[in-house]
Design a protein around this nucleic acid. Sequence first.
DNA 1: CAAATATACATAAGAATATTATGCATTAAT
DNA 2: ATTAATGCATAATATTCTTATGTATATTTG
Lengths: 113, 113
Amino acid sequence: MIYSSELIKGTLKTIVLKQLENNKRMYGYEITQRVKVLTSDRIQITEGALYPTLHALEAEGLVTTETEYIGKRIRKYYTLSPDGKTRIDEKISELADFMNTMKFLLDIKPQPL
Amino acid sequence: MIYSSELIKGTLKTIVLKQLENNKRMYGYEITQRVKVLTSDRIQITEGALYPTLHALEAEGLVTTETEYIGKRIRKYYTLSPDGKTRIDEKISELADFMNTMKFLLDIKPQPL
DNA sequence: CAAATATACATAAGAATATTATGCATTAAT
DNA sequence: ATTAATGCATAATATTCTTATGTATATTTG
């Protein structure tokens, strides 16, 4: 199952920040691939969504960047800033709370183990 | 806590359809009030979001409508269609699955009871 | 009883954020 | 040699929300 796009909306920044928290230093393409693998292809972040999001996170001061050349190919690494570290914890708490509310509202039972 | 708006995006149709499943027959304003109460004010559906959504659900054939006058005031009741009943089950399954994926991806632990 | 609040519908301008398409370029695989 | 993968990025478009506005009736409160 690939989730319908509306669902993923609103969670992209959180997903990206979390990956940076887990892996210290990542480049854009790497983030898309890791999320794809971690979710067994369920979440596929497109480039048109990713890059504007990364640029927005940088503009908000939540990530910092370093550019490197791997051979002749450019690679732009992103790292969580101190503000970003604070923000990701807040965002995850909010999302966890939201998901509990949705479970209640939609009468979703915890699936049997 | 009132959830940041991005979070709610993509779940509005599901919330509305679920309310109609639970309550058979509701009008727009009633839906906003019920959701507000059920979520202890955490989710407040604005009219600018609600009415276009209801119209879209009607255009998709997921709900049917009946208009009634209560005194001189008009009231438009919405009821889930057979297609809507099928769709709400699908949407809830998808959302439940998505939330599990997000919990895993964001390393969210089940909160202690 | 007048004013404020609640009820009840609706649309429109604008913002945010995704999709889809396109572009450029290097490197690896068939 | 061609295709696929890697890697960045932007632009046009679509979707869907917020905020503001509009109209009108009913109820509550000072």
